[in-house]
Amino acid sequence: MPQLTMGQALNQALKEEMTRDDTVFLAGEGVGVSIHDNPMLPTAGLLKDFGPRRVRDTPVSEAAIAGLAVGAAEAGLKPVVEIMFNPFFTLASDMIVNHAAKLRYLSGGKSTFPLVVRIKSGAGFGAGCQHSHNLEAWAAHCPGLKVIMPATAADAKGLLKSAIRDPNPVVFFEDMMLYFAPGPVPEGEHLVPIGQADVKRPGRDVTVVTWSRMLGVAFKAAEQLAGEGIDVEILDLRTLVPLDRAAILASVRKTGRLVVLHEATRTGGFAGEVAAVVMEQAFESLKAPLRRVTGPDIPVPASPPLERFYIPDAEQLVKAIRGIL
């Protein structure tokens, strides 16, 4: 199987879906041009391949970009729009939260909104809190949005293709640090169903539920603990909404222990939802209190040592796991 970075895998998904379906178009700030026309990034080369009718470099206007997606989707096109950095979600949020998410319901099911909002996310590049702020829990809190946050190149490709074909609005969070991380990616028609978590590492002793870039941290901790005979199961949610509750419960019922790991801040973070699902439906299986390992409740700081302090690491996860064994 070819090795691709996540950026290349996303590019392949976009290219395949645009080739397959003329109603798919891209829009966003700098889509396919300038610094984004880099072979490691998702929209590289697409302007050349598909032309300016289908690859639209927009003004700096997040509300208009998101509104473009809502209106065009209602008309039956399949917009894939890009929000350059996760904190700019706030500028597009009226269109996403009050319109994309609600208009199908408000129409009594008459209209559908097959749109994808790709949002570049994650900390780790020293830009500080107005470029790094993971808001997936906000999106998950809005009924009417599907929320995807892949961790591997293969999942990124398969989920983006599924998102583009989905008749409903999908918010697709891409971790920018993962754009450069390689992995095996199936060629051609590779679809990953929305709403299915994936056991990335089976284990006996403790379940780590995570998603996106934190999958790598989970693996690092699991390898370290394996040397001590502790067998960690890693469940990658991949999709936050709809949430694969069955997969979470099955894993916790097997291991009896749970740590939820995410890069986003703690209070109101999605770990709380995962924890609540387990407490409501699998409390009797727990051999110890569950734990959360998350970013602290602070804006992401810019200076390298401060930013490293912010991002959860394997050491914190190992400590949390040891604490409940």
Binding site: A69, G71, A73, A75, K110
Partner: peptide, 26 residues
């Protein structure tokens, strides 16, 4: 909302109509 007569969206968020109209016209 009456998409069947070409009136797919009534938005009461003041100022929300124009971006959606841009999408529809696009």
């Amino acid at each position: 909302a009456l998409p069947e007569i070409g009136a797919p969206c009534t938005s009461t968020v003041v100022g929300a109509g124009p971006p959606i109209a841009v999408g529809r016209a696009f």
